[in-house]
Design a binder for these strands. Structure first.
Lengths: 195, 195
DNA sequence: CACAAAATCGAATCTGCATTAGAATTTTCC
DNA sequence: GGAAAATTCTAATGCAGATTCGATTTTGTG
């Protein structure tokens, strides 16, 4: 039974994630966050020490939650799933989480390089865990020979993550179902990676 | 013989492009722009009606210049160059321009969705010309049968542009030469597009 | 070289927003 | 049901940064 106060805190965080993902770090106004959360601006200070602390928490949650979502999706696969199919699942999970589930993810993705240095440490640590997660997926695939030897897997991974992160900038559900985007992205990976 | 004033205007624009690409729309301070341009803040108002007009001009120039650079690079190819090689050249030109040549490009790329609606029209028109340029490249390739029929070329194009646009977020020259990134990106296109 | 016009500057204004202070209200727990 | 604690509100405060206003310097030109 989450206390009333905890629910308010959650509403403020959700609102901040939404505003942050739309307006960016410098554009996020506490007034707008408060309005979305259905609260007055000063109430935010009961739950967070400062605007920056609120931002940091959103960014961290964003990176953290994507990672958990993707790791869970991969972990839920049958044990005998091949390394390439694990990567396909990760692509699917990343895109769905970013586009259908959570503003936190887009907030953290879009603002990672725009927030002041002081706020980057904790979110950046999460992000590097997430990077490692993808690196492991690719390393496994390479070990099992699913990835051709002459591919620069690191660079390709960066390009792939970039293309996925950028989808939020152009995708509109009414134009094209998400499943089609996912299918094309997976196709791109499969063809680039196998010999 | 560009008059002194025109040179100042150019310095202010360059400074704005640099600050805008680093700090984002809301984070760009006229004070910082002025400092980078070696001028006092009010001087900006002699050359631009407002902060927003300055931003709009940077964004428009960014989109415009990338397009010209890519179109020129493609146009400079021998007439008998195949459609796939034209796309390869476009990938090369886009990345080099974005990463080595101009802050305008990254300023416009990173902020397109963050600036207020009122500023989007002119830059957006340029961007859609740029989109058309890529679409034409892919259409030609499809017409000549270089692209397999079952590829959703539009979606792939968006994913590709996304991966290229995102490179600015992670690439560091000291870690990996740009040529390697370009080569991997081209490889990704070639393998995804051909049957 | 002088002088009008153009370009730039320093100081002042005005606004929007984060943050604080203290009062009022709600929740929790006995 | 009521008091203490927790939570939220309304009303300031203070500052940073865009914009304006004259005053001052620089540039182009006869």
């Amino acid at each position: 039974m989450a206390s009333k106060a905890e629910k308010t805190r959650k509403r403020i965080l959700d609102a901040a994630a939404s505003v942050l993902s739309q307006r960016g770090y410098a554009g996020m106004r506490l007034g707008e966050v408060a309005e979305v959360a259905g609260v007055q601006a000063p109430a935010i200070y009961y739950h967070f020490a400062s605007r920056d602390e609120l931002v940091e928490e959103v960014m961290w949650s964003g990176a953290h939650a994507v990672r958990l979502h993707v790791e869970d999706a991969v972990a839920a696969l049958p044990d005998d799933t091949g390394p390439l199919d694990r990567i396909m699942t990760a692509v699917d999970a990343h895109l769905r989480y970013e586009l259908e589930i959570s503003d936190y993810a887009t907030a953290s993705i879009r603002n990672a390089r725009h927030v002041p240095e002081a706020l980057r440490d904790r979110p950046a640590a999460e992000e590097s865990l997430y990077s490692r997660c993808w690196r492991d997926l690719f390393d496994d695939a390479k070990k099992e020979g699913t990835i051709r030897d002459d591919l620069d897997a690191t660079t390709f991974r960066m390009l792939l993550l970039g293309s996925l992160n950028w989808v939020v900038e152009w995708w509109r559900p009414e134009v094209r179902p998400l499943d089609e985007v996912i299918a094309v992205a997976q196709d791109m990976v499969r063809r680039t990676v196998t010999s």
